[in-house]
Amino acid sequence: MPPQIKRLALLFTIFIGCFILVRHFLVPKSFGKYGHYRADSVEENKSAAVNYAGADVCTGCHEDIAKTKADGKHARIACETCHGPGGKHIEDPSSFKPNRPKGRQFCGMCHAKNAARPKAIPQVDLEKHNEGMECYLCHKAHSPKIR
């Protein structure tokens, strides 16, 4: 073997060796397990905190409200739709209270008149419908029909 080839072969071996070594330390262990990504990342994504607990958890304690709601027009609406995430409230019910939304604007997000809204949803003109009154004075949110 000519000497220049020998020198080149040695150089190449060192280069490839270094490459494999560096790659070994830089590429995460789980990379490529399922595809061209870090498989551990799937678990990390799974481990994010859950903030919305789900209506079933709410009704576990607030049976009375669940009963009122079941007969009303808002029966199929989840508690957290209006009250916001309840995860913290479940962990520590006394010190963390969920939102109790008030005001015409909040109800208006579903019930303000809008041409795009399906006709089946009751809609009012917020500026004309009993101006200045709070919605909850007439309509109880858990069972909104006036009785």
């Binding site: 994504n45 799974k46 859950v50 789900g54 209506a55 808002h74 989840a78 957290e80 739709t81 399906p118």
Partner: peptide
């Protein structure tokens, strides 16, 4: 959006689906 991967892998629905008042 992760399709709420942390929720759906625990058998829950994504948060947007959970709160949608009209299905």
């Amino acid at each position: 959006c992760t399709l709420c991967y942390h929720r759906i892998t625990k058998g829950m629905t994504p948060a947007c689906v959970e709160v949608c008042p009209n299905g």
